[in-house]
Amino acid sequence: MKTVSKYWSIFQITLINSLAYPGELIGRSLMIIPFMWIFYQLWKVTFAAAGAEVISGLTLRDTLWYLMLAETIELGRPPIARTLSENVKDGSIAYILNKPYDFLWYQFSAAMGETIFRAALNALFGGLTVWTLVGAPNHPQGFWIALPAILGAWILHFCVNAMIGLSAFIVEDVSAFTWIYQKLAFIFGGMLIPLDFYPNWLQAIAKALPFASAIYGPARLFVTPTLELLINVMSLQIVWILVLSFTLAFIYRRGLTQLTVNGG
């Protein structure tokens, strides 16, 4: 019980801390507005050119709400890989390590604390933009059904990004890995084009990869909140969370034993 409340209070303090500069927080979230606007332009023209109301099961309105949630998940998550790799490189990991908590759980709680308000504001601005452009979502209640999948998505993001960050133990600079991960998530998570529009073979590959569980799954669940999809998305997500979190824990233990902190 005390262990749980330990990480809960780490979550709380980062949550409060993220409000220290509200202007900064809001300013960052405004970024989603031009993104949603340009997505609207692209898909409006594309749907018109195709002369179809529905493409692969999605209407223009579905597509935009789908993209809004995908962007919210992506823009809401804090730069964990960068934080961790900086911790490793400048030696500040040392100062986080000398308290009685698990380093990874600490980072996870802190990351979630940082995520909440960011994501909420992104959803707010993104949602308002999309609402104005194409109208209300077809299934507003879909948000609540997608919520556990959104949380799962952030856990997946955390696992991968923490691995990237910890690779700073061995490589000098992890920024290339973060870009590439971001772009893979972009393409295999369906952040510009819903995976449904991909050719079948590519769809099959993309849906099996963890990126789909981290972005496409929850976003699609939001626009099509069916029980079948919920079970589908959640079960795949759980498998990936198990695989990736064990890998992360393993990498962390390995990294720790050969830890060399800079400075002396």
């Binding site: 490589v171 000098e172 600079d173 920024s175 290339a176 890995f177 870009w179 590439i180 971001q182 772009k183 893979l184 972009f186 393409i187």
Partner: peptide, 13 residues
């Protein structure tokens, strides 16, 4: 890694 990484990054994008 930044140079090569950026090229890969652009390609994937």
């Amino acid at each position: 890694s930044q140079m090569i990484g950026m090229m890969v990054n652009n390609f994937i994008y």
